[in-house]
């Protein structure tokens, strides 16, 4: 019986953890001011301060999740939803 590898798709996973998580975290930092319920200063500065933790959560999820497809699903969902929020906010302004 062949033992299941510890990490499935290691190359794709590594690329996702390095490039994908960074991209999604930056897009989230840009979009968060559109929906955070704080004053103007906190709404803009808060996401920049939260950025390292947002990246860290995504990095761990990418590394630890069994299915890389699920990781891709979550990251793409975050990317699209926050991308749409950016478009909505820019149109509104």
């Amino acid at each position: 019986m062949t033992k299941e590898p510890l990490f499935s798709s290691p190359l794709v996973r590594t690329l996702t953890a390095v490039v994908g998580c960074l991209l999604v975290s930056v897009v989230m930092t840009a979009a968060m001011p559109a929906y955070l319920p704080f004053n103007q200063g906190d709404r803009i500065a808060g996401p920049t301060l939260l950025f390292p933790f947002v990246w860290l959560a995504q990095f761990f999820y990418t590394a630890m999740s069994r299915s890389i497809k699920r990781v891709w699903g979550v990251l793409v969902l975050l990317l699209i939803s926050h991308g749409l929020l950016i478009v909505w906010a820019l149109r509104g302004s």
Partner: peptide, 11 residues
Amino acid sequence: VLLVPAAAFVS
């Protein structure tokens, strides 16, 4: 390089 441009993008 990343955070201020991102923060300025929407607001």
